[in-house]
């Protein structure tokens, strides 16, 4: 079964992420605003990150500091209606949900959860908090979750910030092992979330 790197999260998981030949990592320098997936959405990290040159979806970028197993930031800038959050690699047997233009921002956590459960092939996934927030001045939803994947005793934690603008999804989601890594990078990720401009 061919797996693309896209399963950004899946890389952390069980399976064997076969990166395409040309995919690599590029430095995202600290303290410099950077456009996400060539969109108008910009973020400013305060640490150095690495960006995967292969995009999971056209509007999405995967960043990490120490490898996606240990910290993975998935940023989606303007996912249009009808598209899936991750690359729909198993679309015949396990299609991912498609974004609806009518999606309410309160439904973003459900959309994220359903997509992520399918990509990770896990049912051990739980939302632990959902609260209102701001993203680049827009009303947004912030959420926190826990999950683990098959074959691993590791508990992982994550958080996300998302909004809908003109029927398109903007989302930043972070996931890391609950042990050490999540807490270590939480403040940095929150700073990135707070740095969003459109």
């Amino acid at each position: 079964m061919k797996r693309l790197p896209v399963l950004a999260l899946a890389a952390a998981l069980v399976a064997l992420p076969a990166a395409p030949v040309l995919a690599g990592w590029k430095l995202v320098e600290e303290d410099k605003p950077v456009a996400v997936a060539k969109s108008a959405m910009r973020v400013t990290p305060s640490e150095n990150w690495n960006r995967w040159t292969a995009r999971p979806v056209k509007q999405g970028e995967t960043w990490t500091r120490d490898g996606v197993n240990l910290n993975e930031l998935y940023i989606v800038a303007g996912l249009p209606a009808g598209m899936t959050l991750y690359k729909d690699v198993q679309k015949k047997e396990r299609p991912l949900p498609k974004l609806s233009a009518k999606l309410d921002l309160t439904e973003i956590p459900e959309f994220y959860e359903s997509s992520t459960r399918l990509v990770l092939n896990t049912s051990v996934f739980q939302m632990t908090a959902v609260e209102p927030a701001k993203m680049g001045g827009q009303d947004a939803v912030k959420f926190a979750f826990e999950y683990s994947v098959e074959g691993s005793p590791l508990k992982r934690r994550g958080m996300g910030l998302g909004t809908m603008v003109k029927g398109q999804l903007y989302l930043i989601a972070f996931a890391a092992p609950a042990t050490h890594f999540f807490d270590r990078d939480k403040a940095e990720v929150e700073a990135i979330m707070a740095s969003v401009t459109f």
Partner: peptide, 11 residues
């Protein structure tokens, strides 16, 4: 070996 590593599985 696989079983051992999975004994602690959250699933």
């Amino acid at each position: 070996e696989a079983e051992r590593s999975l004994k602690t599985s959250q699933q």
